[in-house]
Amino acid sequence: MARYSPEHKEATRRRMIETAGRRFKSDGIDGSGIATLVADAGLTNGAFYGHFSSKDDLIASVVAQQLEDQVAVVNSLPPGLESVEGFLRWYLSPDHRADLAGGCPSAALLDEIGRCDVAVREAYTDGAAAMIQAIVRHLDGGDAQRTEERAIGLFSLLVGSLQAARAVTDPELSDRILAAAYSNAMTLATAPLTSARPTDQDTE
């Protein structure tokens, strides 16, 4: 029996995670059986269980890797508002709306992740927190709490808006959702940190 190197095993595992990620995002987690997932990666059921203990184990690995890859993209952007604007334009674009398999894991899978087991939800929690911190690094401001609140707001606005734009059947409404989301996201990204908090004089 042939013995594979650790590098080969890791490459096979990575291929399984990548192909499963695309399948989950296009067909849904519940709509993707193990037979389809292993076929996408060119493996057998036996090979699958050599890398993952269960489908839930694969889901957790996919969620973690998908978000890690997304965080890496945001972290690789030059710091500053120009990068934020470019990212928002891409995220809220018709091309991204149409690309379920290659797009944002949160927008494609969030409703199903909420019903998954705790290991999958923990993987998502860690990835979402890392994504929020990646956004934080691109927002100006000396108030750490307010900057993080803005990043959380942007993250939530982007994901929810893309989900809504994909869900409606009216193309014009879908386009308007994306356009309005971009406008609101830019307002949030550029809002003065001091505007949302009352001063001592305001409360007297």
Rank of each mutant, 00 (worst) to 15 (best):
N184W: 09
G28L: 03
L100T: 09
P105L: 02
R23T: 14
L67H: 11
S195K: 09
A129T: 12
S183K: 10
V136C: 15
R23P: 07
P78G: 10
R197M: 09
C116G: 10
S156D: 11
Q70H: 09
Y91C: 03
A130V: 02
R23L: 15
D143V: 06
R97D: 08
S174N: 00
R146E: 13
R176P: 00
D57R: 02
F155I: 01
D56M: 01
E18V: 14
A185Q: 03
A180D: 14
A98I: 09
Q66L: 13
R14F: 00
A98L: 12
Q133W: 00
E82P: 00
C116T: 11
A47T: 13
T190C: 12
A128M: 03
R14E: 14
S61E: 01
I177Y: 05
Q145L: 12
R14I: 06
I34L: 15
M1F: 02
V136P: 00
E18G: 04
A179Y: 06
D202T: 10
P198S: 13
V73H: 07
N184Q: 15
I132E: 12
A101G: 14
A119F: 00
D170G: 10
G86C: 08
V84N: 11
E112P: 07
C116L: 02
S5R: 14
T203K: 13
L193W: 01
F52M: 04
L188Y: 04
S76D: 14
R115P: 00
F48E: 08
L158C: 14
A180W: 01
I152H: 11
L81D: 14
V159M: 11
M16Q: 08
S32F: 07
G127A: 10
G141A: 07
S195F: 01
A151D: 12
A181N: 07
R166L: 03
R14V: 12
I135Y: 08
R150D: 08
T19A: 09
K25V: 03
L100E: 06
H138V: 04
S183Y: 01
A185W: 05
D111I: 09
F87L: 15
P198I: 06
S183H: 06
A35R: 15
L88P: 03
T125D: 13
V73Y: 03
E68V: 00
A98G: 14
M16S: 10
A129Y: 00
C116A: 15
L178K: 07
N75E: 15
F155M: 08
